[in-house]
Amino acid sequence: MTKIVLDNVAVEFPIYGLGNLSWRKNLLHLTTAGKLAKDAHNIPIVRALTDINFIIEPGQRVGLSGHNGSGKSTMLRLLAGIYAPTRGNITVNGKIASILDIFLGMDEEATGYENILLRGVLLGESVASMRRRTPEIKELSGLDNYLELPVRTYSTGMRVRLGFAISMTMDADIFLLDEWLAVGDAQFREKAEAHLKSVVDNAAVVVIASHDETLLKSVCNRIIRLENGFIVEDKAN
């Protein structure tokens, strides 16, 4: 059964190449909300997430809110398996689609059609399965014959539509989405939000990170607020 369990999880990472810490320590305090410390080898470390405990059950649409650097993206990377917890245990059951960057894997020289395959492979699908999804993606993106042109000729909006359309055809139990809905024009955003809702309704679990409170309130049924890498609020919406 689809489920995410985080038990006393902490994520800390070392920052190499800083050299002398003394004055840079102050600087970093300004830029990252995470706490700074030193490890055994005197290498500065950032405590990106501390004391994280939660269980996400099927049917939950979780919104991660918080300021820049509060730990939202780190949380998504942790759930995606990109980061491993430094302390505690994490259990994720279910097929994950992590859509943290909608342009990931896209190549300027390749055509729209080729980019569907390129991006799909990096999202964990096979070339063959992406070929099968191509008509659906063509339809959703609305790019039609533009798909035969290299992506370098696309406008930003067209790229967003292609990246979004590819991402939305992934089938998975758990969708991890980072705040990229802010990109694109108003018309696209409307269409994207509508489609996102249908995807959200079909997936067992969705975790969205965003600092757009209105978006989270309209899509999610649970909101977890992060501050300095701690959970400060976890409530049903």
Binding site: G81, P85, N93, I96
Partner: peptide, 8 residues
């Protein structure tokens, strides 16, 4: 895009 179960 696969099932992860930790720890192992």
């Amino acid at each position: 895009m696969n099932t992860i179960v930790r720890p192992q």
